[in-house]
């Protein structure tokens, strides 16, 4: 079994490292890490009174109660309406604004500084203004989601459109393609990978916006559920709700990443 090849240096120390090179080894490492993570959580938790950090098992059982009673699914569904409508608006408005920003010089000069600025500031600060204007409404929450996410779509779309290789547009022009046709058949497809990166980042921000909107402009969603549980000093269910949102976020982000990879396959070498 001993190979004729020279042994790797410091072979004994590297045995664990070489596990990471095999598929099964990676799986084993990941499972071990997960078990360790849950173990630490379990050990750190204290279920003696409601106000302490709960154990893993208690959090799971409380989570299951919330699911079974239908409270969590319903509130999550209501909350997600905000995300869905908000993100739809982000895409429908953000992508065209990004394209115009890239193609029209004056627009770029006016819009871009504001966008850079919007990305840098904590958007949550203007929530009281939105609340004063729109009240504790669905529209107010959707507005929050849109404001959190839209700068990222606009900026990334504009950058992606601007970075399209000018040789490709020149090629299209030389074959007599109209401006519209060049935009549709050359510029937009070429910009898709960059746009998707922006959409992925924007989704992360929209999720934050959704949670912030729920917690500040409380409606019938998870915001009211959390407020109610907080009022009764029940940490475990609040943690269970928070974990549900985070897991939903991870799933949605993975989905967008998967779409991004599929659409951007041609750009990989």
């Amino acid at each position: 079994m001993v190979a004729a090849r020279p042994a790797r240096p410091r072979a004994p120390r590297w045995r664990l490292e070489s596990m990471a090179d095999r598929r099964l080894g990676r799986l084993a490492i990941r499972i071990a890490a997960l078990v360790l993570f849950i173990g630490i959580w379990q050990a750190a938790g204290d279920d003696s009174i409601n106000l302490l950090f709960p154990t893993f098992t208690r959090t799971v059982s409380v989570w299951w109660d919330l699911v079974e009673s239908g409270v969590l699914p319903i509130t999550l569904l209501i909350t997600n309406q905000t995300l869905f409508v908000g993100f739809l608006i982000v895409l429908v408005l953000g992508i065209p604004i990004g394209i115009f920003t890239a193609r029209i010089k004056l627009m770029d000069k006016i819009v871009s500084p504001y966008l850079t600025f919007l990305v840098a500031i904590p958007m949550i600060a203007i929530i009281p203004v939105i609340q004063a204007l729109l009240g504790l409404t669905f529209a107010a929450r959707v507005t929050v989601v849109v404001l959190f996410a839209i700068p990222y779509v606009v900026i990334n779309t504009a950058v992606a459109v601007r970075r399209v290789d000018p040789v490709l547009t020149e090629m299209a022009f030389s074959f007599g393609a109209s401006r519209l046709m060049t935009l549709r058949d050359v510029v937009l497809p070429a910009a898709v990978p960059g746009m998707m990166a922006g959409i992925r980042i924007a989704l992360g921000q929209a999720l934050i916006g959704m949670v912030v909107a729920e917690l500040t402009i409380v409606g019938a969603g998870i915001g009211s559920l959390i407020a109610d549980l907080q009022g009764r000093f029940r940490v475990a269910p609040v943690l269970a709700v928070a974990c549900s949102i985070v897991i939903e976020g991870i799933i949605l982000m993975s989905l967008v990443e998967w779409i991004e990879r599929r659409l951007g396959r041609w750009s990989k070498q």
Binding site: V167, M171, G176, P189, W266
Partner: peptide, 23 residues
């Protein structure tokens, strides 16, 4: 073109027929 200027998301046959599509 010097740098080929092929559209990387299109297959070879779609690239070759690009000029015809434009027309």
């Amino acid at each position: 073109f010097q740098s080929f200027a092929l559209l990387p998301w299109m297959t070879v046959i779609d690239n070759v027929s690009f000029g015809l599509k434009v027309r």
